[in-house]
Design a protein around this nucleic acid. Sequence first.
DNA 1: CTTAATGTTCCCCA
DNA 2: TTGGGGAACATTAA
Length: 256
Amino acid sequence: MPELPEAETIVRTLRPKLEGRRIMAVEFAAARVSRDDPAALAGRAIVSVERYGKQILIGLDRGWILVKLGMTGKLLAGGEAGAYTRAVFTLDSGSLAFDDVRQFGSIAILDAPPDRLGPDPLEIDARAFADRLKARDTEVKRALLDQSFTRGVGNIYCDEALFRAGIHPRARTRRVSRARAENLHRELTALLRLAIDHRGSSVSDYVDASGARGGFQEMHRVYQKKGQPCPRCGSPIRRIVVAQRGTHYCARCQRS
DNA sequence: CTTAATGTTCCCCA
DNA sequence: TTGGGGAACATTAA
């Protein structure tokens, strides 16, 4: 469900509702949602709500909460418990529900903020991005999906960025010229910013913390558009599998 | 009945 | 050490 633009939208809608609140009690309704003891969160004050790649990081007066949304996770401010509610945070004013149909999401209680993932693509420059890309020897799509390469890009924005940059998803990272690698960074960051402006993509059931859908799915050019004409040249969009993920591209505009 | 879905993570092999 | 392939996880919708 969430990639960088969706996580950013969630953070923006969640922050004003959470910052300054105090956690009264937390209940993990499903065993697989967390390995940590929710009792450790009782009494903690929420001081910040940030995005870490495609994850949500909640800063407390002592410690941190890291929410991985997986494929179908939702953080809903003031949400009522439903059939897929996996965790409930009761606050001094209001509440927060973590709903997750497929249960690929999880919640971790940390002593220190995470630091293991790669840089945020919006925070590095084109040159640093190109350096990282050319340091790898793999398919470009694999690199973009690898959260240790850069954090926040998932299947939708990977396919859309590669289309905009005119790069084949199976192109080898080392064979992408520096100019094209830097251009990929420009296209990727412009795409991510535009998607944030449109409050993310709701392709199935993504909603932000207020329950509102995004609008960027209307602007997708190749993702989930197999057989439809390429918006640039008209030849049919193809679907292949790369890194075990459905991959959409235009064979004419994106050469290997 | 089969396939695919916004994501990780782990194990095995080269 | 790096990278690829495949399976697994759980659930729904087409």
